[in-house]
Simulated scan of single mutants.
Amino acid sequence: MNEITAILPMKGNSERVPNKNIRDFAGVPLFFHILDTLIDCKQITTILINTDSEKIADLAKNKEKVKIIERPNHLCGDTVPMNDIIAYDITHSNSEHFLQTHSTNPLLTKNSIEQSIHKYFKKLNEFDSLFSVTKWQTRFYWENGNPVNHNPNELLRTQDLPALYEENSCIYLFSKESFKAANNKRIGNKAQIFTLGQLESVDIDEEEDFILAELLAIQKKNKR
């Protein structure tokens, strides 16, 4: 079995949604949702939680597979690039292959994670990395009003429009080798995409995102 180390970085402070990582979300701290999903994936053997928060570390330290990495001062703050944090984390692991995701993707499923891992390893001879996207088929415009993917004079059905793919920050799969070859970037020099549905792709950046995601999570829980 091809083994993966997961990277789940979390900071204590959040500008737009205060304390969102530990805020109650459908009955438990928000980050428990993705953490428990990662724990349930057999191919994931270790979960690295890089954090500057003692509270997050305390909540996570007794969870299965978890290794806490105390975030050094030079990597603290809201403007530190994620690739810098990843570069630090992979020096604390003997693994070759990594999956990075976020605590703000609570609706991401075990099935999608396992499918993405399978696709990543299956096509390693063609691609050096993988990242998840959301497919959109709707009429997009540039800020100046010019159309992006359609001709306003030809009103095609939206399902017939050229698809655009949004990087949704849910799944990144890469190796130490591809990360280094791409100048310390999680998306390598020859990456493949993995499409997720819009519900799984919900990412919590704003208060409205939190409300929407929690409603969806509760509805999903009630259907079980």
Rank of each mutant, 00 (worst) to 15 (best):
K176M: 11
T37R: 05
F194W: 01
I69E: 13
Y120R: 03
I85W: 01
I85C: 07
N151K: 08
P162C: 10
F194L: 01
E96N: 14
E208K: 15
K180P: 00
S201R: 04
D89A: 12
E143S: 10
K65M: 11
K61D: 10
E208F: 08
L212D: 06
A163C: 06
T134Q: 13
W142K: 13
S14N: 15
I117V: 15
C41L: 09
R224S: 14
R23W: 03
N183P: 04
T104Y: 02
K61F: 06
K11D: 13
K119A: 14
L48E: 08
R23L: 15
Q219A: 11
G188Q: 04
L107N: 06
K11I: 06
H118R: 11
K221G: 01
H33A: 09
E166Q: 15
S53K: 10
F31D: 06
N94C: 03
L156I: 05
S116K: 00
M10H: 03
F194D: 01
P162I: 07
L30P: 10
G77W: 06
M1I: 07
L107H: 04
K63R: 15
K63N: 10
N94T: 12
F179E: 06
L216T: 11
E54P: 01
E208P: 01
A191R: 09
I113Y: 01
A57T: 11
D209L: 08
N183C: 10
R224L: 15
H118A: 12
S93L: 03
S201T: 07
F210V: 09
H74M: 05
I85N: 05
K20Q: 10
H118Q: 12
L99I: 12
H150V: 04
H97W: 07
S132Y: 01
E207H: 06
N105I: 03
Y141A: 08
Q43I: 02
D89H: 01
R157P: 00
H33I: 07
A57Q: 15
K123A: 03
S169G: 00
Q43R: 15
I56D: 09
K180D: 07
E208H: 11
I117Q: 00
N222K: 14
T91H: 07
T46N: 14
S169E: 12
A60L: 11
F210W: 10
I211P: 02
E177D: 12
E64H: 10
N151Q: 03
S178L: 09
D160Q: 12
F127E: 10
D58M: 03
E206F: 15
F127C: 12
L164A: 07
S93V: 04
K61M: 14
C41S: 12
Y88F: 15
E208M: 06
S129F: 00
E96F: 02
H102D: 04
F98G: 04
G77R: 09
E206N: 14
E200R: 00
F98V: 05
T5W: 05
N153F: 13
A6G: 08
N125V: 05
T46M: 05
R23N: 08
L107R: 05
L75D: 08
N144K: 12
R186D: 09
C76D: 02
L164R: 07
K63F: 03
Q198L: 10
V66P: 05
Q192S: 13
N189G: 07
M10Y: 02
I68V: 04
